[in-house]
Structure formats: C-alpha cells, structure tokens
C-alpha cells in the first residue's frame, strides 16, 4: 500500500479524514495554568537519605528474621504454651462453677 497511489483506500480515507475540522477550544481550562504552575514549581521532596533507605531494609530484614525464628521454634512455643492454656481453662471461675454444678 504505497501512499502515492491515488486510488488506494487508505490514501482516500486519510484525505477525507484530513478535511474534518477540530472545532474544540484550545485555550487552557480555567485554573489549569495556576494549578500546573504551582505544582511545577513546588519544592521537590528530597530523595530518601542513605540512612532512611538502610533503615527500611533493616526493618524488612528484621521482619524476615522474626518470621523465620517463629517458624523454626513453633513446636517449642506450642509445647510451652499448651499447659498454660489448660491451667488457664481450669483457673476460669465460670468453668469451675459449671464443673461443680455438673
């Protein structure tokens, strides 16, 4: 489809399309220039400092370590907390009253 072919459909179509006039307004909408100028000249946020970037990484690393430590010691934590749960259940006054009543 060479553009110089007078009868090629694309050429004829674009020739017709070029006749369409865009009558829309090209002036900036009210307040647009003020808003854009204010945003454009606003002082930019300084980049995160080296310390800030490293603290975020350290926080992420600490979270990972916590999760890993919890996962690897889960059985130990579960065994230690189980008797306390039983004790807590027996220490419960409501449970004791129900127990006596029955």
């Amino acid at each position: 489809m060479k553009p110089s072919e007078p009868n090629n459909p694309w050429e004829r179509l674009t020739a017709a399309a070029r006749r369409a006039e865009d009558t829309r307004d090209t002036a900036a909408p009210y307040g647009f220039a003020t808003r854009v100028a204010a945003l454009g000249l606003a002082p930019r946020q300084p980049d995160a400092s080296l310390f800030a970037r490293f603290s975020l990484r350290a926080l992420g690393f600490a979270c990972l370590l916590t999760a890993a430590a919890f996962a690897s010691n889960y059985s130990l934590i579960a065994s230690v907390s189980a008797p306390e749960d039983e004790m807590a259940a027996t220490d419960d006054p409501v449970a004791e009253v129900i127990d006596i009543a029955s």
Binding site: A27, A28, F32, A33, V36, A37, A38
Partner: peptide, 18 residues
Amino acid sequence: DQAAARELVDHLYPLVIR
C-alpha cells in the same frame, strides 16, 4: 516565578492539547 510559569503554560497549552 509563578506568574511566568502560568504565562508559559497558557502560551503552550494550545500546542500541547493539539
């Protein structure tokens, strides 16, 4: 200069919007 920035935006808006 804010006023100059506004003038620049107003001046270039027709070009950009087209």
